[in-house]
């Protein structure tokens, strides 16, 4: 009988395993966190070199329209990043704006108009669209969209508009499936109440369903924008990669990601040309954080209302 008492007082195999397992799993989680911190650390460190080592002023970097890092003017390289910043924002906003009506319409088909058939057909469609790799979108854009633009608008066909169409298809499934989630979280009773008052289906959708799902739909849109802003190869393949201000939608232009993908391999680490590229990467990182923050803010406000 003393044996039992002793066993309860000495650390058992289970308690040793427990401690070891807990540490092991914490280590795994910690390593992910370290990676996140390292990403921010490395890219911030590299990205700031343009301003510290190469003495470019932040305002000139953000508002300058001449991107020619190998040329120096008055002691600092010529790195005006506005063409790429403008290109990225333009392409993101246009593609998302184009996708919103399609996304909401498709989502409504799956939740309110024909929930059964709609979901059965559209769910796999969305999953397939998400699954197609971005280089394939780029390739199709290059062989279908770009020539079409060339035929319609003349010129080379490369440009913001081609990028918009490619990104539209890429962000569409993201926004749609998140909108579906937002719409299905609107209680059925809301819909019944509205229909019972004599409202038509469209009135119910427009005045009740969409309205109560607004925070969720906004989140979906921001997610879509984040994806569009960060997409690299598909855009790079169709946008033309000319570091010029995008005054025309059908003239070659560039985005932050497109300049990064083409540039990093062609510059030498530590040079001003290379530093400038890392500064673009830093902008990309900051924008990604901003989109995240926006999503959190929307979510918090949405939950406060409830």
């Amino acid at each position: 009988m003393d044996k039992i008492r002793a066993s309860i007082l000495t650390p058992s195999r289970s308690s040793k395993l427990e401690r070891r397992g807990k540490w092991l799993s914490l280590l795994c989680l910690g390593s992910i966190c370290i990676v996140v911190i390292a990403i921010f650390g490395f890219i911030t460190y590299r990205g700031l070199a343009t301003f510290t080592t190469d003495h470019v002023s932040l305002s000139k970097f953000l508002t300058g329209t001449d991107w020619n890092p190998s040329v120096s003017k008055s002691g600092a390289p010529l790195v005006g990043a506005l063409p790429m910043i403008a290109g990225s924002f333009l392409i993101t906003i246009l593609a998302t704006a184009l996708a919103i009506p399609f996304a909401i319409g498709t989502a409504l088909m799956m939740t309110d108009v024909t929930p059964k058939t709609g979901t059965r057909i559209l769910q796999p469609v969305l999953e397939l669209l998400v699954g197609i790799p971005s280089v394939v979108y780029g390739f199709v854009g290059l062989t279908v969209v770009v020539p079409a633009m060339r035929n319609i608008f003349g010129g080379s066909g490369f440009g913001i508009l081609s990028g918009t169409f490619v990104l539209f298809v890429m962000v569409l499934p993201t926004i749609t499936s998140m909108t579906v989630d937002a719409l299905t979280s609107v209680p059925k009773s809301f819909r019944y109440a509205s229909l019972a008052l004599g409202a038509t289906r469209w009135q119910t959708i427009y005045k009740v369903v969409l309205r109560s799902a607004t925070p969720g739909i906004l989140t979906a849109i921001v997610f879509g924008m984040a994806r569009a802003f960060g997409e690299a190869l598909a855009v790079q393949m169709v946008v033309g990669n000319a570091t010029l201000m995008p005054y025309s939608l059908v003239a070659p232009a560039s985005t932050l990601t497109s300049v990064l993908t083409t540039g990093i391999g062609n510059t030498v680490m530590g040079t001003a040309q290379n530093d400038a590229l890392w500064s673009l990467a830093l902008i990309l990182l900051i924008m990604s954080l901003t989109f995240n923050l926006a999503i959190h803010l929307i979510a918090n406000r949405g939950s406060l209302k409830r």
Binding site: V35, A232, T257, L284, H296
Partner: peptide, 18 residues
């Protein structure tokens, strides 16, 4: 959790550069 979320939303080109 937020850090993991941020990591999942980072553009893959940024991951590549890192």
């Amino acid at each position: 959790r937020t850090m993991i979320e941020i990591l999942s939303s980072l553009p893959s080109v940024v991951v590549g550069l890192f």
